[in-house]
C-alpha cells in the first residue's frame, strides 16, 4: 500500500520538447486517480515516469516513503496494464501471469497458488493453458490484469487499458476494473483520453493539457466547476456550451447584441459563458430566443442544436418534453453559469 507524491516533476526530451511541465500532486493510499487529456497532453509520459520507463528530468517522485527516481521499474513495486496488453505471445496464459513472479524467485507452489487465485478472480480458469492469440480482446485484457494483480504491487498503473475494446466490452470492463480495485484497495493511476472513463472510474481526476495540469478534483468538481475553458469543453458529453459575451455592470450581452439578463458578478468586459446543456430550460415566454435547427433523439433524452448569439448552442431536454425544430425560448439558472476570462480561458 502506498501513496504517490510528485514534487515539481518535469520531463524534457533530448530534442528539447517539454512533454510535462513542472507538476506536483499527491495520490493517497488506496485512491483511484485518472489522468485524462487529449493525445499528446503528457499523460502517458507522466505515467511512464512513475513506472520508471521514462527518466525524470527534474523533480522527485516518491512511492510510499521512498524516492524512486533512480529505481529500476522492476524494483518499484508496481504493476502496469498496457494499452495493447503486451502479453508475451509465445507463452500460455499461466506463464504470462507467472512470469513476473518467476523472475522474483517466488517459490513454485506459491506461484501456482497465486495464479490460481488470480485466474479465479478474473474468470480465466479455463483459459490458463491457452496462448494469447486464442483469446478474445476482453479475455486478453483480463490476463493483463491478472499479470498485474498476482504480484500484490503497491501501485497499479493503467495505460489506456480499454481503448482496444469495443464499446460494449469497454463498459463492462470499466466496471470490473473499478470493482477489482475497490476490493484490492491498491492505489491506482489510470490514464485515458476518454472523459467517460475518467468520470465513472475516478476518485479524483487530473486533467492535463499541453503537458500542464489544468485541474485536479473529484469528478463532480471537475464537471460542475471546471477551472478552465479547456476542462469545460473536454469533460462532459455533449460538452459545455461556451459562448462569447460582454459584461457591463452585471448585464450580459451576447456577441450579436442579444441581452441575456443580469449576473451577480464583479467581472467586466469580454468573457466566455459556460452553460451545461442540461442547465438550460425551455420556457413558454420571457426567455432568450433560440432557433432550434436539429434534434438528436437519444431515447432517454434529446439534444437540441441551434445557435445563440450566432454561436453553436446545445440544449439537453428529457424525453417527455415534445420539441419541434423552430423558434423557442430558453432560460438559464444564473447560478449554473460559469464565467471564463475570454483571453486566458481561466475561470473567473
Amino acid at each position: 500500500m502506498a501513496q504517490v507524491t510528485l514534487n515539481s516533476v518535469r520531463k524534457v526530451y533530448p530534442n528539447g520538447v517539454e512533454a510535462v511541465t513542472s507538476s506536483s500532486f499527491k495520490i493517497e493510499d488506496g485512491e483511484f486517480v485518472v489522468l485524462v487529456g487529449p493525445s499528446g497532453c503528457g499523460k502517458s509520459t507522466l505515467l511512464r515516469m512513475i513506472a520508471g520507463l521514462e527518466d525524470i528530468t527534474e523533480g522527485t517522485l516518491e512511492i510510499g516513503d521512498r524516492v524512486v527516481n533512480n529505481v529500476d521499474p522492476a524494483d518499484r513495486d508496481i504493476a502496469m496494464v498496457f494499452q495493447n496488453y503486451a502479453l508475451y505471445p509465445h507463452m500460455t496464459v499461466r506463464k504470462n501471469i507467472a512470469y513476473g513472479l518467476k523472475n522474483r524467485k517466488t517459490p513454485a507452489d506459491e506461484i501456482e497458488r497465486k495464479v490460481a487465485e488470480a485466474a479465479k478472480m478474473l474468470n480465466l480458469e479455463e483459459y490458463l493453458e491457452r496462448k494469447p492469440s486464442q483469446l478474445s480482446g476482453g479475455q486478453r485484457q483480463r490476463v493483463a490484469m491478472g499479470r498485474a494483480i498476482v504480484r500484490d504491487p503497491a501501485l497499479f498503473l493503467f495505460d489506456e487499458p480499454l481503448s482496444n475494446l469495443d464499446a460494449k466490452l469497454r463498459n463492462q470492463m470499466r466496471i470490473e476494473i473499478k470493482a477489482l480495485q475497490r476490493r484490492l484497495g491498491v492505489t491506482s493511476i489510470y490514464v485515458t483520453h476518454d472523459q467517460v472513463e475518467a468520470m465513472t472510474m475516478a476518485d479524483r481526476i487530473i486533467v492535463l493539457n499541453g503537458g500542464r495540469i489544468e485541474q485536479i478534483g473529484t469528478p463532480s468538481e471537475i464537471y460542475h466547476n471546471p477551472a478552465s475553458v479547456f476542462v469545460a469543453s473536454f469533460m462532459g458529453a455533449p460538452p459545455m456550451n461556451l459562448i462569447d459575451a460582454t459584461i457591463t455592470g452585471g448585464q450580459v450581452t451576447l456577441a450579436d447584441g442579444v441581452a441575456m439578463g443580469a449576473l451577480q458578478t464583479s467581472a467586466q468586459g469580454a468573457v466566455k459563458l459556460g452553460i451545461r446543456p442540461e442547465d438550460v430550460q425551455l420556457v413558454s415566454e420571457g426567455g432568450v430566443s433560440i432557433n432550434v435547427e436539429l434534434i438528436e433523439e437519444l431515447g432517454a433524452h434529446r439534444l437540441l442544436h441551434g445557435k445563440l448569439g450566432g454561436q453553436p448552442f446545445t440544449i439537453h431536454v428529457l424525453k417527455d418534453i415534445p420539441v419541434d425544430p423552430g423558434a423557442h425560448q430558453i432560460s438559464v439558472d444564473p447560478a449554473a453559469i460559469c464565467l471564463f476570462d475570454a483571453a486566458s480561458g481561466m475561470r473567473l
Binding site: L53, F82, Y88
Partner: peptide, 12 residues
C-alpha cells in the same frame, strides 16, 4: 514496444 516494458516491470 510494450513487450520490453512489461518484461522490465516483470523483473526481466
Amino acid at each position: 514496444e510494450e513487450l520490453v516494458e512489461a518484461a522490465r516491470i516483470d523483473g526481466a
